[in-house]
Amino acid sequence: MYKLITNNPELHHDVKNSELIEGSALDVLIHVRSLVHLGSHLLTHPLCGNLRPNHQPFRSILIDEKNGLADLDSLSLIEEAVRIYQSCMIITPEELDSSTRNDYAYIDSELMRESLGQYGMMKDANINAAPLLLLKKEVLN
């Protein structure tokens, strides 16, 4: 069963099967780690986005919830992500002003939408990635 684990309320509301973690990005990672230990597989990379922990207070991870032997790829990715988050300063959503927080939440949601769409997880099925760019006219010729 696919499930999103997130501390981003904005995304939580838009997704079919989602668990909202009240806490930091690290809390999300640790919760996901426990699930991976019990056999869940990661469907998205836990460090999605080209951002250091101190630049991303939100984390959203899509998993395939299962019981059984831990998946090695998932395990090494989640353990590594936890290690990285524990090794440096992190920011929590609460300590940000609302405009910055919204930007972070927005980016986090954006980065997940594509993957969530692929796995049929969006409540609003119309949300698809931007269509291939076509220009109205040949501006330069």
């Binding site: 999605c48 986005g49 080209n50 980016i107 954006e110 980065l111 997940m112 939408r113 594509e114 990635a129 931007a130 291939l132 760019l133």
Partner: peptide
């Protein structure tokens, strides 16, 4: 090529590389 979504995309002949 970086292809993770908004602000992380790259285009090849106008096609989103992801």
């Amino acid at each position: 090529l970086q292809t993770q979504g908004l602000l992380h995309d790259t285009y090849l002949y106008g096609v989103d590389v992801k």
